[in-house]
Computed example of a mutant assay.
Amino acid sequence: MAKSLKGTVPALPGRLIGYARFSTVDPMTDAQVGELRAAGCDRIHQEHGSGASRVRPVLARVLKELSAGDVLVVVRLDRLARSVSHLLDVIEGLEKRGVHFRSLHDPIDTSTPQGMFSLQVLGAVAQLERALIAERTKSGMKAAKARGRIAGNPGLRERRPEAIQAAAAARNQLYLEQLTTSAQTWLPTVKQLRPQHSWDNVVQILNRRGHDWTVERLRRAVHRMVKEKLADPELLARSPRRPPEDRLMKLVAAIAIADPTLSLRAIADQLDQMGERPVRGGRRWQPSSVKALMDEAFRFGLLRH
């Protein structure tokens, strides 16, 4: 079954934001910009870089700044993504936030039923492509085994330095691509909480929202985003030291910052699920205990009215 891209509730008309990507060897930059202007784009962001990589700082910044109702516009699909799967990942992330996508030279416009249908067709093509690749890989390994050949990279088996370096570079590139693709689902929360709150608290909040981080992996991810200039170095600063008794106050504040819509009862339920012991004893947290900690957090400036 193709990857599902559920439509969102139609938002009020927003801005048309253009994105143009130019190859480092392509001097023709005016054509894309001219088409985007003619399409009515309020702003046009330009990026120079190869289509072979997902690492695009300008695109990452644009995706983060888009708001519900906005429309991201490109001249052609290949200006945005290097593959069908990458395109679907980006558009799915936009749709979850109420942002639409339009390609001027392709039948893709997620604000229309026809455009969404075309997107579903692309999803089916991507799934078929993955299935065919997997089938060819298995067949190739089976044939190689029948001929007595060992599957895998001969250079790695023989520990050749150039093969080891190439494999490490490929893993490094893949890791960065995965981070930049998923950043919009976790980096905003990190920016809200760091460095005022500890890495432990940030991880607890993210995991309560459906992620699966450890402190070590999250710190490594943020370090990499900072290195690529996709995040502020301030996120890595040491969190302020506080007495041990302030830990619960900071934790409650972190939960409230991550999701300001939570009620006192909902925060109490989260503390129970985290295995935190109530400050006043008993088996379960009560909204009154949560309120007392939040009042204290307001006094210390961790929360603002």
Results as ranks from 00 to 15, higher is better:
Glu95Cys: 05
Glu228Ala: 15
Gln196Thr: 15
Pro260Thr: 07
Gln192His: 06
Pro27Ala: 12
Leu94Ile: 12
Leu80Gln: 00
Leu293Ser: 09
Lys64Pro: 00
Lys229Met: 14
Ala81Arg: 00
Pro27Lys: 15
Pro188Gln: 04
Lys142Gly: 07
Val75Glu: 13
His305Lys: 15
Leu236Val: 15
His45Asn: 09
Ser111His: 04
Lys250Leu: 11
Gln120Asp: 10
Pro113Gln: 10
Thr24Ile: 14
Pro287Phe: 11
Lys64Glu: 11
Ser23Pro: 13
Val9Asn: 10
Ala253Ser: 13
Met116Thr: 08
Lys191Thr: 14
Leu16Asp: 10
Ala166Cys: 04
Gly51Trp: 04
Gln184Tyr: 01
Ala170Lys: 14
Gln165Cys: 13
Val74Leu: 06
Arg37Gln: 15
Glu92Gln: 09
Pro195Val: 12
His45Tyr: 10
Arg299Met: 09
Ser182Gln: 10
His45Pro: 00
His211Asp: 08
Ser53Phe: 05
Gln204Cys: 08
Asn153His: 11
Arg241Pro: 00
Lys191Asp: 05
Pro57Asn: 13
Met1Trp: 06
Pro57Val: 12
Ser139Cys: 04
Ala169Ile: 07
Ala183Thr: 02
Asp200Thr: 14
His223Pro: 00
Pro195Asp: 12
Thr189Asp: 07
Ala20Glu: 06
Leu179Lys: 02
Pro278Leu: 06
Gly123Ile: 01
Asp89His: 13
Arg209Trp: 02
Arg157Pro: 00
Gly155Leu: 04
Arg247Ser: 13
Arg15His: 08
Gly18Thr: 14
Arg79Leu: 01
Lys229Ile: 06
Val202Thr: 15
Arg76Gln: 09
Arg76Phe: 01
Phe300Ile: 02
Ala254Glu: 07
Leu5Ile: 14
Val74His: 05
Ser111Arg: 08
Leu235Ile: 05
Met116Lys: 11
Gly93Phe: 01
Leu264Tyr: 13
Ile44Trp: 09
Ala151Pro: 13
Val90Ile: 12
Arg220Lys: 08
Leu36Met: 07
Pro13Asp: 08
Met1Arg: 13
Lys3Trp: 08
Arg242Trp: 03
Val252Ser: 15
Asp106Val: 00
Arg102Glu: 12
Asp30Ser: 10
Leu77Val: 12
Ala126Arg: 02
Ala221Glu: 04
Glu95Leu: 15
Gln204Pro: 00
Asp70Ile: 08
His100Met: 03
Leu59Asn: 03
Ser288Met: 12
Ser182Ile: 01
Ile257Glu: 04
Tyr175Leu: 12
Lys142Ile: 06
Arg284Phe: 15
Pro161Leu: 15
Arg43Ser: 08
Ala143Gly: 02
Ser23Ile: 12
Ser111Trp: 05
His197Glu: 11
Gly51Glu: 03
Ser103Arg: 02
Leu176Gly: 03
Lys191Cys: 12
Gln192Gly: 11
Asn172Tyr: 11
Ala131Tyr: 03
Arg247Gly: 10
Gly115Tyr: 04
Ala237Glu: 14
Arg76Pro: 01
Pro10Asn: 09
Lys229Tyr: 11
His48Gln: 13
Pro57His: 13
Val73Gln: 02
Ala163Gly: 08
Arg97Cys: 05
Phe117Arg: 06
Ile108Ala: 03
Arg82Met: 07
Thr8Ile: 03
Met28Phe: 13
Thr110Asp: 11
Gly155Arg: 02
Leu36Ser: 09
Asn207Pro: 00
Ala168Ile: 09
Lys142Phe: 03
Thr110Gln: 10
Ala81Gly: 04
Ile91Asn: 01
Asn172Val: 02
Glu245Arg: 12
